[in-house]
Amino acid sequence: MMDVIQQLREQAKKLLEEKKVDLVIGFGQGTELARTTPVFIDSPEGVSKLTWGPFCANNLAKYLTDYKNAPGNIAVVVKGCDSRSINRLLDDNQISRDKVVIIGVPCSGQLEWQKVSAEIKPGASLKEVVDNGDSVSVKTDAGDYKFDKKDYLLHRCLVCENPNPVVSDLTIGKEQPVKNYEDRFAEVQALEQMSTEEKNAYWDKQFSRCLRCYACRNVCSVCTCQTCVFDQMLPMWVSKRTNLSENTAFHLTRAFHVAGRCVDCGECDRVCPMDIPLRKLNQKIHKDLGDLFESPTPGTKPGLVSPLGEFSPGDPEEFM
């Protein structure tokens, strides 16, 4: 892990010194070891801020859209899942390939801080986290811990399709094997099996918690509309009230808006302050797209066309 950080810094430094890029977007250390924050580095001296570890969950591809019209080139650090966003943004003509340098970092899964902190002594601060492959050693000021990595990963990492970036200019670190710890759609299937009443009760419980903070939208790498319909005042297409009915409408509209474009990076689910399982909505759409149109996860290949964006005579016709 240390040499990944070392190489990352060297490469970023080189890119900035040679003026190949004007900005490097990467992961930086936050207020504590388990918190990382996006860093924006514009000088070679700043590269020491870059870091890498098992707590780099953010999808930094999102920030590229903020620099869409900025002059100069940008380098961005991406994991496998984030690199799907890059493909998707390229296909949507949101970014141009020649202005972006993609630094890919193969990833063996990101830990969920909540799960880890539940294990260690309350109030203890992390000193060091070492990834040993299948297990993780955590050193804190209140003792050392070692646990099975599988139980502490973010859920999206348990069903990871692309541990290695699908598109990158330089890759740092060694390739990671694809480990599907569990069936990708197991949770969706379980929900599908429920009766209408059970589904109703389940989703009403989830949606009624929503605060309409729009974190799920803001973090989404394929939400690139300049004015979101949920912010628009004139005309006000959708109500801004927070109640079960409106929340349900919001979440269904959001999920359907990214249908066929969602790269399944799972960020919406991770950032939700109310822990609404948003990814189950998106995954349902992924599953249906796969079942009906045999389409792969968007972004896994460059130039993939969404099945919802084109017609082919072989499309299933459930509405005849």
């Binding site: 319909v229 297409w237 959708v238 009915s245 409106e246 349900t248 409408a249 269904l252 509209t253 359907f256």
Partner: peptide
């Protein structure tokens, strides 16, 4: 638009 359908139900 899918939101028309949702709005109708609402």
């Amino acid at each position: 638009n899918p939101s028309f359908v949702l709005r109708a139900f609402q």
